[in-house]
Design a protein around this nucleic acid. Structure first.
Lengths: 250, 250
DNA sequence: TAGTGGTCTAGACCACCCG
DNA sequence: GGGTGGTCTAGACCACTAA
């Protein structure tokens, strides 16, 4: 009786704020434009800075905003599509024409994390070859990858004796390219950037990332496992049946 | 000179807290166990509750914890692998044997969001058939999907006159099943749950989700677009070359 | 050095769940 | 009704960037 209806949904302030800001971004701001700083925005909307920040955090999570300490908050461009599922250029050399190619960075022998050891089907603590790569697109780092290869899974691998570094990484990849791949499985999950990945991705530690785990198989065995962390704020991962999914949009 | 080394990395408290808690979870807690409440944990670690919450939020984002208002914080089980990329059962009826099957929920005609209209290649504002489905696994909702189908893309669609509801949804899917699919493209990106999806997923609005957009094509045309939002805290999306990726692990 | 976002505090009240 | 996590406030200081 009395109150005719709702009042059932006292929408949180930060949620409402997010909606208002989101609409303002669509209509009143251009891509790359700098927003007023947090203290001023908070004052303008009559909320505490923490509340305003909660709204900004969500918008950043959705790829609408980009915030950089010491600089400011800017309107982010739409997320870029990044091909992840295409069978081609897995371990290919960087092609100058390919905008989103991998760049070898470093390589050593090390113990893989327990979860990776399980996927590789090697006992925990086994030394395996690791290769660190970086993926850059439109001049911006978008992914950091660690590739794990047991030395007995590829013939020429034990002969590699280059010192740790990019040269060694290229040597390992060269050997991998000789393997006839049978298939691969991939999974995607949400994670937060570890300190080392964060540095490579030009983000703060803990930034949200999409973790792509790939298991490469050949002749019934697991040849290698790659763990790639993509910036969740700037990337949309594409898995296509055909080639060049990204280009079809044009 | 003088100070022999770092001091360069004054690690934030919440980050250190996260590490400590993470290790404690591994060694001292069983899956499903309830943690002490936030006020007590904060006191125990000598930090403000907000700081403690920042650590818990990250752990929840990584799928290590599950928090429910009015209940408490529990240790989450490992994320479940959910097949997303397999070409089979796209629009099949729910199979009792299939643990992660889709359940039709509702269907009406409505305007798709602008981004979807673009993918469907129809003018903005066009009415299309929409089908809402839910995906449940292990008794838990894991995904909510909205499927958009222009009525002229499938022959028998205009004849459907059932009132909005699950029956109509099944009718639309039945028509779709007659179409010979040519291929499909998928993309995955991070998002936050809208209010309606959140309710279906048994989460609060704004909860992190993985948004899977699928474009189905046949005979060179786009037949349908599906936007599925998966719970990012509990799901690991798998894209396999072969069938039944999930089962290979056993 | 001035201005930005990032971290942190110590409180308060609210919405929800369960016994 | 008592306990949980969720929201919100009004401050403070810190780390970083750029002029």
């Amino acid at each position: 009786m009395g109150t005719t209806q709702l009042e059932t949904v006292p929408e949180p302030k930060y949620w409402h704020l997010k909606t208002v800001l989101s609409e303002a971004l669509d209509s009143e701001f251009a891509i790359g434009e700098i927003l007023p700083n947090e203290r001023e925005l908070a004052a303008r909307f009559g909320v505490a800075r923490a509340t305003l920040r909660q709204a900004l955090e969500q918008l950043e999570l959705e790829g609408r905003l980009q915030r950089r300490r010491g600089v400011g908050t800017t309107v982010a461009p739409p997320r870029m599509g990044v091909a992840v599922g295409d069978r081609a250029h897995s371990w290919e050399d960087a092609d100058d024409a390919d905008d989103a190619a991998w760049q070898p960075v470093d390589s050593t022998e090390a113990e893989p994390p327990a979860a990776v050891a399980r996927l590789l089907d090697v006992p925990p603590g086994t030394l395996v070859h690791t290769v660190r790569r970086t993926r850059v697109s439109h001049g911006q780092p978008i992914a950091a990858e660690l590739l794990y290869v047991p030395s007995d899974s590829v013939a020429g691998l034990t002969a590699i004796d280059a010192p740790p570094g990019a040269a060694r990484a290229r040597a390992v990849l060269r050997e991998l390219r000789r393997v006839a791949l049978e298939g691969r499985e991939q999974s995607v999950e949400l994670g937060s950037a570890r300190a080392d990945d964060a540095k490579q991705l030009d983000r703060l530690p803990g930034a949200p990332v999409l973790v792509v785990t790939t298991r490469y198989t050949a002749a019934g065995h697991t040849v290698a496992v790659a763990v790639a962390t993509y910036r969740a704020d700037t990337c949309r991962l594409t898995f296509g049946d055909g080639p060049a999914v990204e280009l079809l949009a044009s």
